[in-house]
Design a protein around this nucleic acid. Structure first.
Length: 386
DNA sequence: TAGTCGTGGTG
DNA sequence: TCACCAAGACT
Protein backbone atom coordinates (compact mmCIF):
# COMPACT_ATOMS: atom_id res chain seq x y z
CA UNK A 1 0.00 0.00 0.00
CA UNK A 2 1.52 3.28 -1.10
CA UNK A 3 1.14 6.11 1.32
CA UNK A 4 2.46 8.91 -0.79
CA UNK A 5 1.57 10.27 -4.18
CA UNK A 6 5.27 10.04 -4.99
CA UNK A 7 6.10 6.33 -5.05
CA UNK A 8 9.79 6.80 -5.78
CA UNK A 9 10.41 9.10 -2.84
CA UNK A 10 8.24 6.99 -0.54
CA UNK A 11 10.00 3.77 -1.47
CA UNK A 12 13.48 5.18 -0.97
CA UNK A 13 12.49 6.68 2.34
CA UNK A 14 10.90 3.46 3.57
CA UNK A 15 14.13 1.63 2.82
CA UNK A 16 16.25 3.81 5.12
CA UNK A 17 13.60 4.94 7.60
CA UNK A 18 14.45 2.60 10.48
CA UNK A 19 18.20 2.99 10.14
CA UNK A 20 17.96 6.79 10.28
CA UNK A 21 15.50 6.73 13.16
CA UNK A 22 17.71 4.43 15.25
CA UNK A 23 20.75 6.65 14.62
CA UNK A 24 18.75 9.72 15.60
CA UNK A 25 17.46 8.03 18.76
CA UNK A 26 20.96 7.14 19.91
CA UNK A 27 22.09 10.74 19.56
CA UNK A 28 19.00 12.79 20.42
CA UNK A 29 16.40 10.46 22.01
CA UNK A 30 15.47 10.00 25.66
CA UNK A 31 17.56 7.51 27.62
CA UNK A 32 16.95 8.25 31.30
CA UNK A 33 13.21 7.96 31.90
CA UNK A 34 12.43 5.94 35.06
CA UNK A 35 11.19 2.92 33.08
CA UNK A 36 14.14 2.79 30.72
CA UNK A 37 17.41 0.88 31.21
CA UNK A 38 15.57 -2.20 32.43
CA UNK A 39 14.45 -5.46 30.86
CA UNK A 40 11.99 -6.16 33.68
CA UNK A 41 8.70 -6.80 31.90
CA UNK A 42 6.75 -5.86 35.04
CA UNK A 43 8.26 -2.39 35.17
CA UNK A 44 7.89 -1.91 31.42
CA UNK A 45 4.28 -3.10 31.49
CA UNK A 46 3.41 -0.77 34.39
CA UNK A 47 4.88 2.21 32.55
CA UNK A 48 3.07 1.40 29.31
CA UNK A 49 -0.30 1.18 31.07
CA UNK A 50 0.23 4.43 32.97
CA UNK A 51 1.38 6.17 29.78
CA UNK A 52 -1.79 5.30 27.84
CA UNK A 53 -3.28 8.69 26.90
CA UNK A 54 -1.18 10.26 29.64
CA UNK A 55 1.89 12.45 29.36
CA UNK A 56 5.30 11.48 30.67
CA UNK A 57 5.59 14.32 33.20
CA UNK A 58 2.25 13.33 34.74
CA UNK A 59 3.17 9.67 35.04
CA UNK A 60 6.60 9.95 36.66
CA UNK A 61 5.57 10.57 40.29
CA UNK A 62 2.79 7.95 40.12
CA UNK A 63 5.22 5.40 38.68
CA UNK A 64 7.69 5.86 41.53
CA UNK A 65 5.04 5.59 44.26
CA UNK A 66 3.50 2.55 42.62
CA UNK A 67 6.78 0.63 42.34
CA UNK A 68 7.67 1.42 45.91
CA UNK A 69 4.39 -0.04 47.14
CA UNK A 70 4.24 -2.90 44.59
CA UNK A 71 7.82 -3.86 43.66
CA UNK A 72 6.81 -6.92 41.63
CA UNK A 73 3.82 -8.52 39.97
CA UNK A 74 3.17 -10.87 42.90
CA UNK A 75 2.91 -7.96 45.36
CA UNK A 76 0.44 -6.22 43.07
CA UNK A 77 -1.60 -9.38 42.50
CA UNK A 78 -2.19 -9.99 46.22
CA UNK A 79 -3.01 -6.35 47.10
CA UNK A 80 -6.59 -5.21 47.87
CA UNK A 81 -8.21 -3.35 45.00
CA UNK A 82 -8.74 -0.28 47.21
CA UNK A 83 -4.96 0.03 47.67
CA UNK A 84 -4.42 -0.06 43.92
CA UNK A 85 -7.16 2.49 43.30
CA UNK A 86 -5.77 4.82 45.98
CA UNK A 87 -2.36 4.88 44.30
CA UNK A 88 -4.00 5.52 40.92
CA UNK A 89 -6.20 8.33 42.28
CA UNK A 90 -5.78 11.45 40.15
CA UNK A 91 -4.23 9.69 37.17
CA UNK A 92 -7.53 9.16 35.33
CA UNK A 93 -8.98 6.37 33.18
CA UNK A 94 -9.58 4.19 36.23
CA UNK A 95 -10.46 1.08 34.25
CA UNK A 96 -6.71 0.95 33.62
CA UNK A 97 -6.13 0.40 37.34
CA UNK A 98 -8.76 -2.31 37.64
CA UNK A 99 -7.42 -4.06 34.52
CA UNK A 100 -3.88 -3.68 35.82
CA UNK A 101 -4.83 -5.44 39.02
CA UNK A 102 -6.67 -8.22 37.17
CA UNK A 103 -3.78 -8.60 34.73
CA UNK A 104 -1.29 -9.07 37.57
CA UNK A 105 -3.49 -11.80 39.01
CA UNK A 106 -3.75 -13.56 35.64
CA UNK A 107 0.03 -13.38 35.11
CA UNK A 108 0.60 -14.94 38.52
CA UNK A 109 -2.13 -17.57 38.22
CA UNK A 110 -1.76 -18.59 34.59
CA UNK A 111 1.77 -17.61 33.49
CA UNK A 112 3.84 -18.50 36.53
CA UNK A 113 4.39 -14.85 37.44
CA UNK A 114 6.22 -14.09 34.21
CA UNK A 115 4.85 -11.89 31.44
CA UNK A 116 4.47 -13.74 28.11
CA UNK A 117 7.08 -12.84 25.48
CA UNK A 118 4.97 -12.82 22.34
CA UNK A 119 2.70 -9.87 21.55
CA UNK A 120 -0.27 -12.02 20.56
CA UNK A 121 -0.45 -13.59 24.02
CA UNK A 122 0.22 -10.30 25.77
CA UNK A 123 -2.70 -8.73 23.92
CA UNK A 124 -5.10 -11.26 25.45
CA UNK A 125 -4.39 -9.89 28.95
CA UNK A 126 -6.69 -7.26 30.55
CA UNK A 127 -5.79 -3.69 29.61
CA UNK A 128 -3.19 -4.69 27.01
CA UNK A 129 -4.17 -3.94 23.42
CA UNK A 130 -2.25 -4.42 20.21
CA UNK A 131 0.03 -1.38 20.56
CA UNK A 132 0.81 -1.81 24.25
CA UNK A 133 1.53 -5.50 23.69
CA UNK A 134 4.02 -4.63 20.96
CA UNK A 135 5.75 -2.04 23.15
CA UNK A 136 6.15 -4.46 26.07
CA UNK A 137 7.37 -7.27 23.81
CA UNK A 138 9.83 -5.02 21.99
CA UNK A 139 11.31 -3.41 25.11
CA UNK A 140 11.44 -6.52 27.29
CA UNK A 141 12.03 -9.28 24.73
CA UNK A 142 13.25 -7.64 21.46
CA UNK A 143 10.09 -8.78 19.69
CA UNK A 144 9.61 -7.82 16.03
CA UNK A 145 6.34 -5.95 16.57
CA UNK A 146 5.03 -2.51 15.64
CA UNK A 147 3.43 0.02 17.97
CA UNK A 148 0.82 2.54 16.80
CA UNK A 149 0.21 5.22 19.41
CA UNK A 150 -0.49 8.92 19.02
CA UNK A 151 3.18 9.69 18.46
CA UNK A 152 3.57 7.14 15.69
CA UNK A 153 0.34 8.22 14.00
CA UNK A 154 1.54 11.82 13.94
CA UNK A 155 4.99 10.94 12.58
CA UNK A 156 3.62 8.64 9.87
CA UNK A 157 0.86 11.05 8.85
CA UNK A 158 3.38 13.84 8.37
CA UNK A 159 6.40 12.02 6.95
CA UNK A 160 4.35 9.93 4.51
CA UNK A 161 1.59 12.47 3.94
CA UNK A 162 -1.29 10.26 5.06
CA UNK A 163 -4.65 12.01 4.86
CA UNK A 164 -7.68 11.39 7.04
CA UNK A 165 -8.40 11.21 10.78
CA UNK A 166 -6.08 8.51 12.23
CA UNK A 167 -8.89 7.34 14.52
CA UNK A 168 -10.95 6.29 11.50
CA UNK A 169 -10.70 2.52 10.95
CA UNK A 170 -9.66 2.82 7.32
CA UNK A 171 -6.80 5.22 8.07
CA UNK A 172 -5.77 3.22 11.10
CA UNK A 173 -5.53 0.00 9.07
CA UNK A 174 -3.34 1.80 6.56
CA UNK A 175 -1.09 3.05 9.34
CA UNK A 176 -0.75 -0.38 10.96
CA UNK A 177 0.37 -1.82 7.63
CA UNK A 178 2.86 1.00 7.09
CA UNK A 179 4.19 0.75 10.66
CA UNK A 180 4.83 -2.98 10.23
CA UNK A 181 6.46 -2.52 6.83
CA UNK A 182 8.96 -0.07 8.32
CA UNK A 183 10.19 -2.34 11.14
CA UNK A 184 13.92 -3.13 11.18
CA UNK A 185 15.30 -6.63 11.69
CA UNK A 186 17.28 -5.64 14.78
CA UNK A 187 17.47 -2.94 17.48
CA UNK A 188 13.72 -3.10 18.14
CA UNK A 189 13.92 -1.34 21.51
CA UNK A 190 15.86 1.60 20.07
CA UNK A 191 13.57 1.78 17.05
CA UNK A 192 10.40 1.67 19.15
CA UNK A 193 11.74 4.27 21.57
CA UNK A 194 12.79 6.40 18.60
CA UNK A 195 9.26 6.52 17.20
CA UNK A 196 7.94 7.66 20.56
CA UNK A 197 10.76 10.16 21.10
CA UNK A 198 10.45 11.73 17.68
CA UNK A 199 6.69 12.14 18.06
CA UNK A 200 6.98 13.46 21.60
CA UNK A 201 9.80 15.94 21.01
CA UNK A 202 10.62 17.22 17.49
CA UNK A 203 7.40 16.13 15.82
CA UNK A 204 5.03 17.28 18.55
CA UNK A 205 1.51 18.53 17.94
CA UNK A 206 2.23 22.24 18.39
CA UNK A 207 5.40 23.51 16.77
CA UNK A 208 7.38 20.77 15.00
CA UNK A 209 11.12 21.52 14.85
CA UNK A 210 11.59 20.30 11.29
CA UNK A 211 15.10 21.74 11.03
CA UNK A 212 16.36 19.16 13.51
CA UNK A 213 14.44 16.20 12.09
CA UNK A 214 16.25 13.26 10.46
CA UNK A 215 13.49 13.13 7.82
CA UNK A 216 13.49 16.84 7.06
CA UNK A 217 14.38 16.33 3.39
CA UNK A 218 11.81 13.58 2.78
CA UNK A 219 8.82 14.62 4.87
CA UNK A 220 5.69 15.11 2.77
CA UNK A 221 4.08 17.45 5.28
CA UNK A 222 7.18 19.64 5.47
CA UNK A 223 7.68 19.70 1.72
CA UNK A 224 4.08 20.77 1.12
CA UNK A 225 3.70 23.09 4.13
CA UNK A 226 1.18 20.87 5.88
CA UNK A 227 2.97 20.36 9.22
CA UNK A 228 0.11 22.15 10.93
CA UNK A 229 -2.78 20.33 9.23
CA UNK A 230 -1.40 16.77 9.44
CA UNK A 231 -2.48 14.54 11.00
CA UNK A 232 -6.06 15.41 10.11
CA UNK A 233 -7.88 16.42 13.29
CA UNK A 234 -10.86 14.65 14.72
CA UNK A 235 -14.27 15.77 13.42
CA UNK A 236 -15.82 17.79 16.24
CA UNK A 237 -19.22 17.51 17.85
CA UNK A 238 -20.95 19.66 20.44
CA UNK A 239 -20.46 18.03 23.81
CA UNK A 240 -23.44 17.52 26.14
CA UNK A 241 -23.54 19.05 29.62
CA UNK A 242 -24.68 17.31 32.78
CA UNK A 243 -25.69 18.76 36.13
CA UNK A 244 -25.22 16.72 39.29
CA UNK A 245 -26.08 17.56 42.90
CA UNK A 246 -23.76 15.91 45.44
CA UNK A 247 -24.21 15.73 49.20
CA UNK A 248 -21.52 16.67 51.68
CA UNK A 249 -23.09 15.05 54.72
CA UNK A 250 -21.10 16.05 57.71
CA UNK A 251 -21.08 14.59 61.20
CA UNK A 252 -18.45 16.33 63.30
CA UNK A 253 -15.13 15.85 61.56
CA UNK A 254 -16.34 13.14 59.22
CA UNK A 255 -18.02 13.22 55.82
CA UNK A 256 -19.97 10.41 54.20
CA UNK A 257 -18.49 8.90 51.03
CA UNK A 258 -20.04 6.38 48.67
CA UNK A 259 -18.26 3.82 46.50
CA UNK A 260 -19.10 4.11 42.82
CA UNK A 261 -19.96 1.02 40.77
CA UNK A 262 -17.12 -0.56 38.78
CA UNK A 263 -18.58 0.39 35.43
CA UNK A 264 -19.16 3.94 34.28
CA UNK A 265 -17.50 7.17 35.20
CA UNK A 266 -15.04 7.10 38.12
CA UNK A 267 -15.68 3.35 38.43
CA UNK A 268 -14.45 1.84 41.70
CA UNK A 269 -13.53 5.19 43.23
CA UNK A 270 -14.96 6.76 46.37
CA UNK A 271 -17.17 9.79 45.74
CA UNK A 272 -19.83 11.93 47.39
CA UNK A 273 -23.44 10.65 47.38
CA UNK A 274 -25.37 11.90 44.36
CA UNK A 275 -28.95 13.04 44.14
CA UNK A 276 -30.57 10.47 41.85
CA UNK A 277 -32.30 10.82 39.54
CA UNK A 278 -30.75 14.20 38.64
CA UNK A 279 -32.95 17.26 38.97
CA UNK A 280 -33.74 19.88 36.37
CA UNK A 281 -33.92 22.59 39.01
CA UNK A 282 -31.26 25.26 38.64
CA UNK A 283 -32.61 27.48 41.44
CA UNK A 284 -30.88 26.69 44.76
CA UNK A 285 -34.05 27.84 46.55
CA UNK A 286 -36.29 25.47 44.61
CA UNK A 287 -38.56 23.93 47.21
CA UNK A 288 -38.85 20.50 45.63
CA UNK A 289 -35.06 20.27 45.20
CA UNK A 290 -34.55 21.19 48.86
CA UNK A 291 -37.04 18.58 49.95
CA UNK A 292 -35.39 15.85 47.89
CA UNK A 293 -31.94 16.78 49.21
CA UNK A 294 -33.15 16.68 52.79
CA UNK A 295 -34.90 13.38 52.29
CA UNK A 296 -31.88 11.75 50.64
CA UNK A 297 -29.50 13.05 53.32
CA UNK A 298 -31.80 11.97 56.12
CA UNK A 299 -31.91 8.42 54.78
CA UNK A 300 -28.12 8.21 54.53
CA UNK A 301 -27.39 9.84 57.89
CA UNK A 302 -30.24 8.38 59.89
CA UNK A 303 -28.02 6.34 62.21
CA UNK A 304 -26.10 9.43 63.32
CA UNK A 305 -28.70 12.12 63.65
CA UNK A 306 -31.29 14.38 62.10
CA UNK A 307 -30.69 16.86 59.30
CA UNK A 308 -30.05 20.25 60.83
CA UNK A 309 -29.32 22.35 57.75
CA UNK A 310 -28.79 22.11 53.98
CA UNK A 311 -26.61 24.84 52.45
CA UNK A 312 -25.43 25.28 48.84
CA UNK A 313 -21.64 25.35 48.38
CA UNK A 314 -19.64 26.82 45.56
CA UNK A 315 -20.14 24.71 42.44
CA UNK A 316 -17.46 23.64 40.01
CA UNK A 317 -17.34 22.52 36.40
CA UNK A 318 -15.25 19.57 35.24
CA UNK A 319 -14.60 19.05 31.54
CA UNK A 320 -14.28 15.49 30.26
CA UNK A 321 -13.45 14.37 26.74
CA UNK A 322 -17.07 13.72 25.88
CA UNK A 323 -19.15 15.91 28.20
CA UNK A 324 -19.06 18.79 30.61
CA UNK A 325 -20.01 18.05 34.21
CA UNK A 326 -21.41 20.75 36.54
CA UNK A 327 -21.05 19.67 40.16
CA UNK A 328 -23.24 21.35 42.75
CA UNK A 329 -22.25 20.36 46.30
CA UNK A 330 -24.62 20.77 49.24
CA UNK A 331 -23.39 20.91 52.81
CA UNK A 332 -25.65 18.88 55.06
CA UNK A 333 -25.07 19.23 58.78
CA UNK A 334 -26.40 16.59 61.13
CA UNK A 335 -27.43 17.24 64.69
CA UNK A 336 -25.74 14.29 66.36
CA UNK A 337 -27.96 11.96 68.31
CA UNK A 338 -25.86 8.83 67.81
CA UNK A 339 -22.25 8.32 68.81
CA UNK A 340 -19.69 9.55 66.22
CA UNK A 341 -18.57 6.53 64.27
CA UNK A 342 -16.60 5.42 61.28
CA UNK A 343 -18.76 2.33 60.95
CA UNK A 344 -18.94 1.47 57.26
CA UNK A 345 -20.75 -0.93 55.08
CA UNK A 346 -18.96 -2.04 51.92
CA UNK A 347 -20.10 0.93 49.91
CA UNK A 348 -20.29 3.74 52.47
CA UNK A 349 -17.60 5.26 54.66
CA UNK A 350 -17.47 8.15 57.11
CA UNK A 351 -14.02 9.62 56.46
CA UNK A 352 -12.03 12.24 58.35
CA UNK A 353 -9.14 14.18 56.84
CA UNK A 354 -6.74 11.27 57.08
CA UNK A 355 -9.29 8.91 55.56
CA UNK A 356 -9.90 11.25 52.66
CA UNK A 357 -6.18 11.57 52.03
CA UNK A 358 -5.78 7.79 51.85
CA UNK A 359 -8.86 7.05 49.75
CA UNK A 360 -9.10 6.86 45.98
CA UNK A 361 -11.12 9.93 44.97
CA UNK A 362 -11.66 11.56 41.57
CA UNK A 363 -9.92 14.92 41.26
CA UNK A 364 -12.92 17.26 41.41
CA UNK A 365 -14.34 15.40 44.43
CA UNK A 366 -10.97 15.68 46.14
CA UNK A 367 -11.07 19.42 45.48
CA UNK A 368 -14.38 19.67 47.30
CA UNK A 369 -13.14 17.52 50.17
CA UNK A 370 -9.91 19.48 50.51
CA UNK A 371 -11.80 22.76 50.67
CA UNK A 372 -13.69 21.48 53.72
CA UNK A 373 -10.44 21.39 55.70
CA UNK A 374 -11.26 18.21 57.58
CA UNK A 375 -8.83 17.20 60.26
CA UNK A 376 -7.99 13.82 61.80
CA UNK A 377 -8.67 15.54 65.11
CA UNK A 378 -9.36 19.06 66.35
CA UNK A 379 -11.68 21.72 65.06
CA UNK A 380 -13.05 21.34 61.57
CA UNK A 381 -13.25 24.46 59.46
CA UNK A 382 -15.19 25.32 56.36
CA UNK A 383 -13.26 27.25 53.73
CA UNK A 384 -15.31 26.44 50.66
CA UNK A 385 -17.21 29.60 49.70
CA UNK A 386 -20.95 29.46 49.19
C1' DT B 1 -18.56 0.74 14.76
C1' DA B 2 -19.01 4.43 17.58
C1' DG B 3 -19.18 5.73 22.58
C1' DT B 4 -17.10 5.65 26.83
C1' DC B 5 -13.54 6.57 29.97
C1' DG B 6 -9.87 11.49 33.43
C1' DT B 7 -6.74 14.72 33.96
C1' DG B 8 -3.51 18.18 32.84
C1' DG B 9 -0.78 20.78 29.43
C1' DT B 10 -0.66 23.87 25.52
C1' DG B 11 -1.32 27.36 21.89
C1' DT C 1 -11.07 31.28 27.95
C1' DC C 2 -11.32 27.41 25.13
C1' DA C 3 -10.50 23.72 21.83
C1' DC C 4 -7.52 20.14 21.25
C1' DC C 5 -5.32 16.02 22.69
C1' DA C 6 -1.64 12.89 25.02
C1' DA C 7 3.02 6.00 25.16
C1' DG C 8 -5.34 3.39 23.89
C1' DA C 9 -8.50 -0.25 25.45
C1' DC C 10 -12.92 -1.92 25.99
C1' DT C 11 -17.81 -2.69 24.85
Amino acid sequence: MKASSNDTTSGALAHTFAERLIAWQAEHGRHDLPWQNTRDAYRIWLSEIMLQQTQVATVIPYYGRFLERFPDVAALARAPQDDVMALWSGLGYYSRARNLHRCAQVVVAEHGGRFPADPETLATLPGIGRSTAAAIAAFAYDAHAAILDGNVKRVLARVFGIEGFPGAPKVEREMWALAESLLPQRDLPAYTQGMMDLGATLCGRGKPRCGECPFDGDCVAHATGRERTLPTSKPKKTQPERYVDVLVIRAGERVLFERRPDSGIWGGLWSLPELTPPTDARDPDDALLRARLTEHAAALGAKLGAVQSVLPLHGLTHVFTHFKLHLRPWLVTLSLTGAPTSANDDNHAWLDGAGVAAAGLPSPIRKIADALSLHPSGTAQLSLPT
